[in-house]
Simulated assay, not measured.
Amino acid sequence: MKITAGGVTAAEWTKFSSLRSTWITTGISVFLLIAFGMIAAASFSGDNMSSVGLVLSGSGLAALSVGVLGALLGAGEYTTGMIRATLAAVPRRLPVLWSKSLVAGSAAFVTMTAGAFAAFAAGSAVLNGNVDPLGLGDDGVPRALLGAGLYLGLVAVLGVALGMLVRSSAGAITILAGLLLIVPGLAPLLPDSIADAVTPYLPSNAGSAVMALAPTDGTLGPWAGLAVFAGYVVVALAAAAYRLKKTDA
Protein backbone atom coordinates (compact mmCIF):
# COMPACT_ATOMS: atom_id res chain seq x y z
CA MET A 1 0.00 0.00 0.00
CA LYS A 2 1.35 3.42 -0.97
CA ILE A 3 2.08 5.73 1.94
CA THR A 4 0.76 9.24 1.27
CA ALA A 5 1.46 12.50 3.08
CA GLY A 6 -2.21 12.68 4.03
CA GLY A 7 -2.11 9.18 5.45
CA VAL A 8 0.95 9.93 7.57
CA THR A 9 -0.64 13.15 8.83
CA ALA A 10 -3.88 11.33 9.67
CA ALA A 11 -1.92 8.71 11.59
CA GLU A 12 -0.05 11.37 13.55
CA TRP A 13 -3.31 13.16 14.33
CA THR A 14 -4.75 9.91 15.66
CA LYS A 15 -1.75 9.45 17.94
CA PHE A 16 -1.86 13.06 19.03
CA SER A 17 -5.58 13.24 19.75
CA SER A 18 -5.76 9.88 21.51
CA LEU A 19 -3.31 10.86 24.24
CA ARG A 20 -4.77 12.15 27.49
CA SER A 21 -1.72 14.39 27.93
CA THR A 22 -2.66 16.24 24.73
CA TRP A 23 -5.96 17.45 26.11
CA ILE A 24 -4.59 18.14 29.58
CA THR A 25 -1.67 20.19 28.26
CA THR A 26 -3.85 22.04 25.75
CA GLY A 27 -6.36 22.87 28.47
CA ILE A 28 -3.59 24.12 30.76
CA SER A 29 -2.20 26.29 27.96
CA VAL A 30 -5.56 27.97 27.30
CA PHE A 31 -6.20 28.36 31.03
CA LEU A 32 -2.83 30.04 31.61
CA LEU A 33 -3.38 32.41 28.72
CA ILE A 34 -6.83 33.49 29.92
CA ALA A 35 -6.25 33.41 33.69
CA PHE A 36 -3.00 35.36 33.73
CA GLY A 37 -4.44 37.85 31.27
CA MET A 38 -7.41 38.50 33.54
CA ILE A 39 -5.21 38.82 36.61
CA ALA A 40 -2.88 41.28 34.88
CA ALA A 41 -5.76 43.30 33.42
CA ALA A 42 -7.49 43.60 36.77
CA SER A 43 -4.45 44.36 38.92
CA PHE A 44 -2.11 46.47 36.75
CA SER A 45 -1.74 50.05 37.98
CA GLY A 46 1.41 51.28 36.24
CA ASP A 47 2.02 53.22 33.06
CA ASN A 48 2.89 52.50 29.41
CA MET A 49 1.11 49.20 29.10
CA SER A 50 -1.62 48.55 26.55
CA SER A 51 -4.68 46.52 27.40
CA VAL A 52 -3.66 44.00 24.71
CA GLY A 53 -0.26 43.56 26.34
CA LEU A 54 -1.97 42.96 29.67
CA VAL A 55 -4.49 40.39 28.46
CA LEU A 56 -1.70 38.47 26.71
CA SER A 57 0.49 38.42 29.81
CA GLY A 58 0.02 34.67 30.08
CA SER A 59 1.57 34.03 26.67
CA GLY A 60 4.99 33.25 28.15
CA LEU A 61 3.70 30.41 30.30
CA ALA A 62 1.36 29.28 27.54
CA ALA A 63 4.38 29.10 25.20
CA LEU A 64 6.18 26.79 27.58
CA SER A 65 3.07 24.64 27.87
CA VAL A 66 2.49 24.24 24.12
CA GLY A 67 6.21 23.68 23.66
CA VAL A 68 5.98 20.80 26.12
CA LEU A 69 3.07 19.44 24.08
CA GLY A 70 5.20 19.52 20.93
CA ALA A 71 8.17 17.94 22.69
CA LEU A 72 6.02 15.08 23.97
CA LEU A 73 4.73 14.42 20.46
CA GLY A 74 8.21 14.59 18.97
CA ALA A 75 10.05 12.47 21.53
CA GLY A 76 7.29 10.29 22.95
CA GLU A 77 7.72 7.44 20.50
CA TYR A 78 11.45 7.29 21.17
CA THR A 79 10.67 6.81 24.86
CA THR A 80 8.28 3.93 24.22
CA GLY A 81 10.20 2.40 21.30
CA MET A 82 7.22 2.81 18.96
CA ILE A 83 9.32 4.96 16.66
CA ARG A 84 10.75 1.79 15.07
CA ALA A 85 7.29 0.69 13.97
CA THR A 86 6.50 4.20 12.72
CA LEU A 87 9.66 4.41 10.62
CA ALA A 88 9.13 0.88 9.32
CA ALA A 89 5.73 2.01 8.06
CA VAL A 90 7.16 5.27 6.68
CA PRO A 91 10.65 4.34 5.45
CA ARG A 92 11.29 7.78 3.92
CA ARG A 93 11.23 9.07 7.52
CA LEU A 94 10.98 12.82 6.89
CA PRO A 95 7.19 12.77 6.35
CA VAL A 96 6.93 11.69 9.99
CA LEU A 97 8.67 14.88 11.13
CA TRP A 98 6.65 17.10 8.81
CA SER A 99 3.36 15.48 9.86
CA LYS A 100 4.10 15.74 13.58
CA SER A 101 5.04 19.39 13.10
CA LEU A 102 1.89 20.11 11.09
CA VAL A 103 -0.37 18.42 13.62
CA ALA A 104 1.17 20.08 16.68
CA GLY A 105 1.52 23.48 15.05
CA SER A 106 -2.01 23.54 13.64
CA ALA A 107 -3.59 22.36 16.88
CA ALA A 108 -1.68 24.94 18.91
CA PHE A 109 -2.45 27.73 16.44
CA VAL A 110 -6.21 27.05 16.47
CA THR A 111 -6.56 26.60 20.22
CA MET A 112 -4.20 29.43 21.19
CA THR A 113 -5.76 31.89 18.74
CA ALA A 114 -9.14 31.10 20.27
CA GLY A 115 -7.54 31.44 23.70
CA ALA A 116 -6.06 34.82 22.80
CA PHE A 117 -9.42 36.20 21.68
CA ALA A 118 -11.04 34.73 24.81
CA ALA A 119 -8.32 36.30 26.97
CA PHE A 120 -8.97 39.65 25.28
CA ALA A 121 -12.70 39.43 25.95
CA ALA A 122 -12.29 38.25 29.55
CA GLY A 123 -9.45 40.67 30.32
CA SER A 124 -11.32 43.63 28.84
CA ALA A 125 -14.26 42.87 31.10
CA VAL A 126 -12.13 43.23 34.26
CA LEU A 127 -9.64 45.82 33.00
CA ASN A 128 -8.27 48.17 35.64
CA GLY A 129 -9.71 51.66 35.25
CA ASN A 130 -6.23 53.16 34.91
CA VAL A 131 -5.71 51.44 31.55
CA ASP A 132 -7.37 52.67 28.39
CA PRO A 133 -9.54 49.91 26.91
CA LEU A 134 -9.22 48.84 23.29
CA GLY A 135 -11.71 47.12 21.00
CA LEU A 136 -11.24 44.48 18.35
CA GLY A 137 -11.60 47.15 15.69
CA ASP A 138 -8.66 49.23 16.95
CA ASP A 139 -5.45 49.30 14.95
CA GLY A 140 -3.16 46.40 15.68
CA VAL A 141 -5.50 44.49 17.97
CA PRO A 142 -6.58 41.71 15.54
CA ARG A 143 -2.98 41.31 14.39
CA ALA A 144 -1.71 41.03 17.96
CA LEU A 145 -4.27 38.38 18.88
CA LEU A 146 -3.78 36.41 15.68
CA GLY A 147 -0.04 36.84 16.11
CA ALA A 148 -0.27 35.24 19.54
CA GLY A 149 -1.73 32.14 17.91
CA LEU A 150 0.94 32.13 15.20
CA TYR A 151 3.76 32.50 17.71
CA LEU A 152 2.44 29.78 20.00
CA GLY A 153 1.84 27.49 17.02
CA LEU A 154 5.49 27.93 16.03
CA VAL A 155 6.56 27.19 19.61
CA ALA A 156 4.73 23.87 19.39
CA VAL A 157 6.59 23.08 16.14
CA LEU A 158 9.86 24.00 17.86
CA GLY A 159 9.00 21.53 20.62
CA VAL A 160 8.44 18.77 18.04
CA ALA A 161 11.76 19.56 16.34
CA LEU A 162 13.67 19.53 19.61
CA GLY A 163 11.94 16.31 20.70
CA MET A 164 12.93 14.50 17.51
CA LEU A 165 16.41 16.01 17.58
CA VAL A 166 17.40 15.01 21.13
CA ARG A 167 14.95 12.06 21.29
CA SER A 168 14.15 12.71 24.93
CA SER A 169 11.09 14.52 26.27
CA ALA A 170 12.94 15.76 29.33
CA GLY A 171 15.91 16.93 27.29
CA ALA A 172 13.73 18.73 24.73
CA ILE A 173 11.68 20.45 27.43
CA THR A 174 14.86 21.57 29.21
CA ILE A 175 16.30 23.07 26.03
CA LEU A 176 12.97 24.72 25.21
CA ALA A 177 12.71 26.28 28.67
CA GLY A 178 16.27 27.49 28.38
CA LEU A 179 15.64 29.14 25.01
CA LEU A 180 12.33 30.76 25.96
CA LEU A 181 12.85 31.66 29.61
CA ILE A 182 16.43 31.36 30.87
CA VAL A 183 18.44 32.88 27.99
CA PRO A 184 16.37 36.12 27.88
CA GLY A 185 16.78 36.39 31.65
CA LEU A 186 20.56 36.17 31.36
CA ALA A 187 20.86 38.76 28.59
CA PRO A 188 20.88 41.75 31.01
CA LEU A 189 24.09 40.34 32.51
CA LEU A 190 25.93 41.11 29.27
CA PRO A 191 27.61 44.48 28.67
CA ASP A 192 24.99 47.04 27.69
CA SER A 193 26.16 47.44 24.11
CA ILE A 194 26.05 43.68 23.49
CA ALA A 195 22.77 43.19 25.36
CA ASP A 196 21.07 45.95 23.37
CA ALA A 197 22.18 44.37 20.10
CA VAL A 198 21.35 40.77 21.00
CA THR A 199 18.22 40.96 23.15
CA PRO A 200 15.67 41.72 20.39
CA TYR A 201 16.82 38.64 18.47
CA LEU A 202 16.51 36.13 21.30
CA PRO A 203 13.81 33.54 20.50
CA SER A 204 11.01 34.54 22.85
CA ASN A 205 11.71 38.27 22.51
CA ALA A 206 11.60 38.08 18.73
CA GLY A 207 8.53 35.86 18.58
CA SER A 208 6.50 37.80 21.10
CA ALA A 209 7.08 41.06 19.20
CA VAL A 210 4.15 40.13 16.97
CA MET A 211 1.84 40.55 19.97
CA ALA A 212 2.83 44.18 20.57
CA LEU A 213 0.60 46.90 19.18
CA ALA A 214 3.66 48.83 18.03
CA PRO A 215 7.42 48.26 18.32
CA THR A 216 9.27 50.12 21.06
CA ASP A 217 12.93 50.98 21.46
CA GLY A 218 14.99 47.79 21.56
CA THR A 219 12.40 45.54 19.94
CA LEU A 220 11.81 44.24 16.45
CA GLY A 221 8.74 45.02 14.37
CA PRO A 222 5.84 42.56 14.69
CA TRP A 223 6.36 40.59 11.51
CA ALA A 224 10.15 40.94 11.53
CA GLY A 225 10.21 39.45 15.02
CA LEU A 226 7.98 36.56 14.03
CA ALA A 227 10.16 35.93 10.98
CA VAL A 228 13.27 35.75 13.18
CA PHE A 229 11.56 33.27 15.49
CA ALA A 230 10.41 31.23 12.49
CA GLY A 231 14.08 31.12 11.48
CA TYR A 232 14.96 29.46 14.78
CA VAL A 233 12.20 26.91 14.17
CA VAL A 234 13.46 26.18 10.65
CA VAL A 235 16.99 25.60 11.95
CA ALA A 236 15.70 23.20 14.62
CA LEU A 237 13.59 21.34 12.04
CA ALA A 238 16.59 21.08 9.68
CA ALA A 239 18.74 19.64 12.46
CA ALA A 240 16.00 17.17 13.43
CA ALA A 241 15.51 16.18 9.78
CA TYR A 242 19.24 15.57 9.33
CA ARG A 243 19.44 13.34 12.40
CA LEU A 244 16.27 11.49 11.49
CA LYS A 245 17.56 10.80 8.00
CA LYS A 246 21.15 9.94 8.87
CA THR A 247 21.00 8.00 12.16
CA ASP A 248 19.22 4.94 13.47
CA ALA A 249 16.02 5.19 15.45
Score class of each variant (00 low, 15 high):
Met1Thr: 14
Thr9Phe: 15
Thr14Asn: 08
Ser17Ile: 14
Ser17Ala: 15
Ser17Thr: 15
Ser18Gln: 14
Arg20Asn: 06
Ser21Lys: 09
Thr22Cys: 09
Ile24Trp: 13
Gly27Leu: 13
Phe31Arg: 00
Ile34Thr: 01
Ile34Val: 15
Ala35Glu: 07
Phe36Gln: 12
Met38Thr: 08
Ile39Gln: 15
Ala40Gln: 14
Ala42Leu: 09
Phe44Leu: 09
Met49Lys: 12
Ser51Trp: 12
Ser51Ile: 08
Val52Arg: 04
Gly53Asp: 11
Leu54Ser: 12
Val55Pro: 00
Ser57Tyr: 10
Ser57Glu: 05
Ser57Thr: 13
Ser57Met: 07
Ser59Leu: 05
Ser59Asp: 09
Leu61Thr: 05
Ala63Asp: 00
Val66Leu: 07
Gly67Tyr: 08
Tyr78Gly: 03
Tyr78Pro: 00
Thr79Gly: 12
Gly81Phe: 10
Ala85Arg: 11
Thr86Ile: 07
Thr86Glu: 04
Thr86Phe: 11
Leu87Asp: 01
Arg92Lys: 08
Arg93Met: 03
Leu94Asp: 06
Pro95Phe: 06
Lys100Cys: 11
Lys100Trp: 01
Leu102Asp: 00
Ala104Asn: 01
Ser106Tyr: 03
Ser106Met: 14
Ala107Asp: 09
Ala108Ile: 05
Val110Arg: 05
Thr111Glu: 01
Ala114Asp: 03
Gly115Tyr: 11
Gly115Asp: 08
Phe117Asp: 11
Phe117Ile: 07
Ala119Arg: 03
Phe120Ser: 09
Phe120Gln: 00
Leu127Val: 14
Asn128His: 15
Asn130Arg: 13
Asn130Phe: 10
Gly135Ile: 12
Leu136Gln: 13
Gly137Met: 09
Gly137Asp: 11
Asp138Pro: 11
Val141Leu: 05
Pro142Asp: 09
Pro142Arg: 02
Leu145Gly: 05
Leu145Asn: 07
Gly147Glu: 02
Ala148Asp: 11
Ala148Pro: 01
Leu150His: 00
Tyr151Cys: 03
Tyr151Lys: 03
Gly153Ala: 04
Gly153His: 06
Leu154Ala: 14
Val155Lys: 02
Ala156Asp: 02
Ala156Gln: 06
Gly159Gln: 03
Gly159Tyr: 07
Leu162Phe: 07
Leu165Gly: 04
Val166His: 00
Arg167Phe: 10
Arg167Trp: 00
Ala170Phe: 03
Gly178Asp: 08
Gly178Cys: 05
Leu179Asp: 04
Leu180Ser: 10
Leu181Asn: 07
Ile182Lys: 09
Val183Ala: 06
Gly185Asp: 11
Leu186Phe: 10
Leu186Met: 12
Ala187Glu: 08
Pro191Trp: 05
Pro191Tyr: 01
Asp192Cys: 04
Asp192Gly: 15
Ser193Leu: 02
Ala195Asn: 12
Ala197Trp: 04
Thr199Met: 04
Thr199Leu: 00
Leu202Gly: 06
Asn205Leu: 04
Gly207Ser: 08
Thr216Phe: 07
Gly221Thr: 05
Pro222Phe: 05
Trp223Arg: 00
Trp223Ile: 10
Ala224Glu: 12
Ala224Lys: 01
Ala224Phe: 08
Leu226Gln: 09
Val228Ala: 10
Ala230Gly: 11
Gly231His: 11
Val235Gly: 04
Val235Asn: 02
Ala238Cys: 04
Ala238Tyr: 10
Ala241Asp: 02
Lys246Leu: 13
Ala249Pro: 02
